[in-house]
Simulated scan of single mutants.
Amino acid sequence: MIPARYQHVLFGLILSGLMSFVVSGIATARTVGWIDGFVGLWMSNWLPSWAVAFPTVLVVAPIARRLVARLVRPESQTQR
């Protein structure tokens, strides 16, 4: 098992991998359509995308967490 202190890195790896996989698949399909060799082309587009997405997620996630914390009211202050 991976130590808990690396949880944010593993989360970023999985999230960036899945998101870049889906987005690159959509972009590839919209660009070339469902052609022969589509999967190979998709994979060749996805891997470089993931290489950019992973470090981007690691940098942007803390900023997004701070922004969300400012936009969300703590649970104790909500009306019931």
Rank of each mutant, 00 (worst) to 15 (best):
T28H: 02
I35W: 11
G37L: 09
V22H: 01
Y6M: 01
R5M: 04
I2T: 06
E75R: 04
L71Y: 13
L13F: 11
R65L: 00
G40Y: 05
A69S: 15
G40R: 06
V68Y: 10
D36P: 03
D36Y: 02
M1K: 02
A4D: 07
F11H: 07
L41C: 03
M19T: 12
M43V: 15
V9P: 02
S20I: 05
L15T: 13
M43W: 10
A53G: 13
R65C: 00
V59P: 04
D36G: 03
P3N: 03
V23I: 15
M43G: 02
V60F: 13
L10R: 14
L67M: 14
S76T: 09
T31D: 12
G12D: 00
L18G: 09
A61Y: 07
V32S: 01
F21P: 10
A64S: 06
R30H: 05
L10S: 06
I14D: 00
L41A: 05
Q77T: 08
N45P: 09
P55A: 02
E75G: 05
R73D: 14
G17M: 03
V9N: 01
V9T: 13
S49E: 08
A53Y: 12
W46H: 10
A27N: 05
M1C: 07
I14L: 03
A4I: 11
I26Q: 12
S20N: 04
W34C: 03
L58R: 11
V32W: 10
F54R: 08
L41S: 04
V60H: 02
V59G: 01
V9I: 15
G25L: 04
V22C: 04
W50T: 12
S24G: 02
S44G: 05
S24C: 10
G12R: 08
G37C: 12
I2R: 02
I35V: 15
L13K: 03
S16D: 04
L58E: 07
L18D: 01
G17Y: 08
T56M: 15
G25C: 11
V68D: 13
V23E: 01
P62F: 04
P74D: 14
A64G: 12
G40T: 04
V39H: 07
Q7G: 01
R5H: 06
R80P: 01
G17F: 05
V23Y: 10
T31W: 10
